[in-house]
Amino acid sequence: MSVPARTDPGQPTGGPPIVGSVPAMTAPPTTSRHDWRSALADLSGGWGQRSLWGHLGWQDIRQRYRRSVLGPIWITISMAVTAVALGILYAGLFGNDLSVQLPYILVGFIVWAFISGCITEGADVFIANEGLIKHLPAPLSVHVYRLVWRQSLFFAHNLIVYLIMLLVFPQPLDWSVLLALPAFLLLAVNGAWVAMLFGIVTTRFRDLNPITQSIVQLMFFLTPIVWMYQDLLNSSNPTIADRARLAEFNPFLHFIEVIRQPLLGQDVVWRHWVVVLGITVVGWVMCLVVLRRYRSRVSYWV
């Protein structure tokens, strides 16, 4: 009984045997789904689809105020009514002039509306877009950019109240008012990583969504939005002044102040900018780590 000669696996059948050794065939290298390049490609790919998330952001606002006579102007009206009511209330409680208390509260409200929107809606950004994630082959960052763009449109609408306030209560504005633009860009950049990070984590652990909303409501009272931080620091009571300094550990204070100070013509405190820049760097590092590790699982979690 004869044993057939062994042939190389890559040798075509039916031909003469190939003399010598043939190098083994190796598979082409594959790109891991958990590498940094994929995470960065998701962010850049989503930014490249600006026409998509820009259109979707406009549609979100139009859909929310569909068949409304005033449409998005209701955003401005509700913001103005709330700010005026709280301004009159807290001006009486703290004994401040209304021309000082009301602009302080109004600008704080405008900035806080953007921050709280990015956090609360960011925690739900992927769950709310379940259908698009499963059926639309687009980067995850598209939904985050859409959310930040929508909140930016709300912010622009609320600025109408600020412009009206300048006519009623003129502020000592100077060149520093131009710092409000880079300050808002920093705010939007931080809103993007917050929405991405919270969105991924909350998609996996759904119980974090109501917890996040509760924490945001609590931080509203702990952040100097309706109460004036400088008044407490300059208090004659040393105990109150010492406790007021604890607000420096509140990161929302610094994000509020980098925009409120230029818009009200106040002296710019660069310490707030340093803290905001530090939070921006640390936040994006954490976001990229989570995006690199769990980006491919979001479609299974929603």
Results as ranks from 00 to 15, higher is better:
residue 4 P to Q: 12
residue 8 D to Y: 11
residue 13 T to D: 15
residue 15 G to V: 15
residue 16 P to E: 14
residue 18 I to H: 12
residue 31 T to Q: 15
residue 42 D to T: 03
residue 47 W to H: 06
residue 63 Q to E: 14
residue 70 L to A: 01
residue 81 V to K: 04
residue 91 A to W: 00
residue 98 L to T: 10
residue 105 I to M: 06
residue 117 G to K: 04
residue 121 E to K: 12
residue 126 F to E: 00
residue 129 N to H: 14
residue 130 E to D: 15
residue 145 Y to S: 01
residue 145 Y to M: 03
residue 150 R to G: 01
residue 150 R to E: 03
residue 152 S to W: 11
residue 155 F to I: 13
residue 159 L to R: 07
residue 162 Y to Q: 13
residue 169 F to I: 01
residue 170 P to H: 01
residue 178 L to C: 03
residue 180 A to T: 03
residue 189 V to C: 12
residue 195 A to H: 00
residue 195 A to Q: 05
residue 198 F to H: 07
residue 214 S to L: 14
residue 215 I to G: 12
residue 220 F to H: 02
residue 221 F to Q: 07
residue 223 T to Y: 09
residue 224 P to Q: 01
residue 226 V to T: 06
residue 226 V to M: 10
residue 230 Q to I: 06
residue 236 S to C: 10
residue 237 N to V: 08
residue 239 T to R: 12
residue 241 A to V: 10
residue 243 R to L: 15
residue 244 A to R: 00
residue 250 N to V: 05
residue 257 E to I: 10
residue 258 V to I: 15
residue 258 V to A: 04
residue 260 R to I: 04
residue 262 P to Q: 13
residue 262 P to S: 14
residue 266 Q to H: 14
residue 267 D to R: 04
residue 269 V to P: 07
residue 270 W to E: 06
residue 270 W to G: 10
residue 270 W to I: 10
residue 278 G to N: 02
residue 283 G to F: 05
residue 289 V to F: 12
residue 292 R to Y: 09
residue 297 R to T: 07
residue 298 V to S: 11
residue 299 S to F: 05
